[in-house]
Design a protein around this nucleic acid. Sequence first.
DNA 1: CGGAATCCGATCTGATACTG
DNA 2: CAGTATCAGATCGGATTCCG
Lengths: 123, 123
Amino acid sequence: MGSPAVSQNGHPAACRAREVLIRIGDKWSMYVISQLGERTLRFTELKRGIDGISQRMLTVTLRGLERDGIVSRTVYPVVPPRVEYALTPMGRTLLESVGALVNWAEDHLGEIQGSRTAYDTRD
Amino acid sequence: MGSPAVSQNGHPAACRAREVLIRIGDKWSMYVISQLGERTLRFTELKRGIDGISQRMLTVTLRGLERDGIVSRTVYPVVPPRVEYALTPMGRTLLESVGALVNWAEDHLGEIQGSRTAYDTRD
DNA sequence: CGGAATCCGATCTGATACTG
DNA sequence: CAGTATCAGATCGGATTCCG
């Protein structure tokens, strides 16, 4: 009853998980996860599939996702090098929600751009 | 047929929507959206409900969400000021996916922390 | 109460060059 | 191919101050 007003139904001690959410919400992570949802991909394939990402940011993003156990990295000892990235089992549990957000962003792009213009124009 | 190999099934011209995804994935946006999913909240209530957020970042986050048409801001001309934030109809369509991610982060916090330790310890 | 404005160190990120 | 290393410019974000 008379409890703190907030965080009754939502997220209890949620904000300890913030470090994790930051990884997912990171500028490129959702695209990487989304891409890997289809199939295993090599570095260059990922780079081509994610428009605008620099090599550096793809590397940084992949390292972060790998460290968190969301993406796995497999190196094949051949020349030239072949490195394949895939979602781990844990990573796959993210796929539905992340895909939903990626699709949401696409679906509402126009509406949001309109809202931005309206916001910037008024006054 | 022989099209570019990537982006057949996933996201087509997705990365124009990146600007939008960045807003959602922003460090605090998901928490704000999640909180407002329960009910309309005042500035101070939001601040209390989101552990660790500074006044500045809450302001910046709310302005961004407002500009994008995800959050509405209602000012009541009273003294002291009363400002209420709520999700717009468009914002409410985000709630399910965002909530899923927030919960995912909580649920997998331990597993991820373990993965990080393992990653940092090896070598 | 709900901000806006400013300062300033920390962090991020793209460009570039180099490598096994 | 799949990176690493480095550096400089841009951005972020906390602390502080002030305001209606």
